[in-house]
């Protein structure tokens, strides 16, 4: 293995390197690099990079990546694998498989408005962080307002900003700490912090919780993530408001601050500030005195 490399200007690189610091355009082929820090465009083919921090446009073909953070547009062709990929720019991928995929940089909730706008100062019409292609990840961390119109297979979705989908959102575990709008959400476990601008037609799964209070800390901590739980504490402390869901169907349901037409399940708890037209339960039901339920049926 070669040692460290400092690169200025255009350069072609091939081989094994411990660390590369580059400013300028890089072409990397058939390489194995432990750490790469770069400012400028990079074109990577058939290579492995364990740690990549880059500002500038990245093109990759058949690349194996470890921990990656890129401020700039990314275009990936062929099969690309990554451990953790943080994309702060547009991401286009033919087939990207990650352990953790995040669509924006960490920012505190105090500055969240900037992230939610999704625009760059001076270029107000252009939204950054658009995904297109196919993405597979154990955990997708949504750190900017996102409309899902790309193909995906996510086991876990953690959403810190507005998440919108015209179709069904499907995953195993969904944690939504901000607004969420979808025709259908189908997940084994769902936690949603209620927000008045959230709207879901059909919410289905095994266990569904809509609550201001977040109690699933143990499960949440066990998920693969690029940032730990403490980072989410500030958004969890923000006030919540009554959200709307047309229908909820699940085995275990706990809801607060919810307006719904129908809730159907086995074990149901209707908490404070709920207005529910009809509740169907098969095993148990608890209704808060601070909730309004029009009809309750044992099925």
């Amino acid at each position: 293995m070669y040692g460290n490399l400092w690169v200025l200007g255009e350069r072609f690189i091939s081989g094994k390197y411990r660390r590369i610091m580059a400013a300028g355009g890089l072409k990397i082929e058939d390489s194995n690099i432990l750490k790469l820090y770069s400012a400028g465009e990079i074109d990577i083919k058939n290579s492995t990079i364990k740690k990549l921090r880059a500002a500038g446009e990245i093109k990759g073909t058949n690349v194996n990546l470890g921990n990656v953070s890129i401020a700039g547009d990314i275009k990936l062709t062929g099969e690309v694998k990554a451990d953790v990929l943080v994309a702060c720019g547009d991401l286009t991928a033919e087939y990207l498989s990650c352990k953790v995929l995040r669509n924006f940089a960490k920012r505190s909730s105090k500055n969240n408005r900037w992230v939610r706008s999704g625009s760059i100062a001076g270029d107000g019409n252009r939204t950054v962080g658009e995904f297109s292609g196919f993405f597979k990840a154990e955990t997708f961390e949504n750190f900017k307002d996102t409309v899902i119109d790309f193909e995906y297979e996510f086991v876990n979705i953690i959403s810190k900003c507005r998440l919108t989908s015209l179709n069904a959102i499907k995953c195993e575990r969904l944690f939504s700490f901000s607004q969420i709008c979808a025709d259908e959400v189908n997940a084994d476990y769902v936690y949603i912090k209620p927000h008045s601008t959230s709207k879901i037609s059909m919410l289905a799964g095994s266990e569904i919780i809509i609550s201001e209070e977040f109690k699933s800390i143990k499960l949440f901590k066990s998920l693969p993530k690029s940032v730990d739980f403490t980072y989410y504490k500030d958004i969890l402390s923000l006030p919540s408001s009554i959200m709307s869901v047309e229908t909820i169907e699940a085995d275990k349901i706990f809801v607060e601050k919810l307006k719904a037409n129908l809730i159907s399940g086995a074990e149901i708890v209707i908490g404070d500030l709920c207005i529910i037209d009809k509740v169907e339960y098969s095993q148990s039901i608890k209704i808060s005195p601070k909730a309004v339920v029009n009809e309750v049926i044992k099925i």
Binding site: N186, D188, S206, E207, E249, A250, S264, A266
Partner: peptide, 21 residues
């Protein structure tokens, strides 16, 4: 109907929607 299906087969909402996913 969905309710009759669940009753007749003994499956839960969780199973039904997992199989749909």
């Amino acid at each position: 109907s969905k309710k009759d299906l669940l009753k007749e087969t003994g499956i839960s909402y969780g199973q039904l929607y997992r199989w749909k996913r």
